[in-house]
């Protein structure tokens, strides 16, 4: 087991699917059920990559994404957004938050829309981490 990949998704089935793919790639999986728990794990475990859902209770994927992209401590952590929300909708919401006074953040390195094929997720993980 090599690099650490944190899976943040409120859907247990989605977490299981993502973790299985992460293990298939020989990375070490970590899991969190919401953004708040995800941020705690990021601080504790310093993962190499986060696979992040958008709609989650307690703290949204949007909030965690913005935390990771605006905090220098986390600048080396890669992010794959994996959501049922289309990419253009996600990007519009980011732009709106910036317009409402929040710090501008870059687009995610990878944005995959659910349902994703295991091969596509595997390929994206490897492209970013290797």
């Amino acid at each position: 087991m090599g690099k650490k990949v944190l899976v943040v998704d409120d859907d247990p089935d989605a977490r299981l699917f993502n973790i299985t793919v992460v293990e298939e790639c020989n990375y070490t999986p970590l899991e969190a059920a919401d953004g708040e728990e995800g941020l705690k794990l990021v601080k504790q475990e310093k993962p190499d990559l986060v696979i992040l859902d958008v709609f989650m209770p307690r703290q949204t994927g949007i909030r965690l994404y913005r935390e990771l992209k605006t905090d220098k401590r986390f600048k080396n952590i890669h992010i794959i957004m994996l959501s049922g929300i289309p990419k253009k909708t996600f990007l519009r919401s980011q732009k709106a938050l910036t317009e409402f006074g929040e710090q501008e953040v870059p687009e995610p390195e990878a944005y995959l829309e659910k349902p994703v094929e295991p091969g596509e997720l595997m390929q994206t993980l490897k492209q970013i981490l290797e």
Partner: peptide, 21 residues
């Protein structure tokens, strides 16, 4: 769950963007 000003705004922009799309 939990909601405050910031989380409210996150959901608001996402849901309005989703409805529009």
């Amino acid at each position: 769950g939990y909601i405050d000003d910031k989380i409210y705004l996150d959901y608001l922009v996402l849901i309005i963007s989703k409805i529009a799309d």
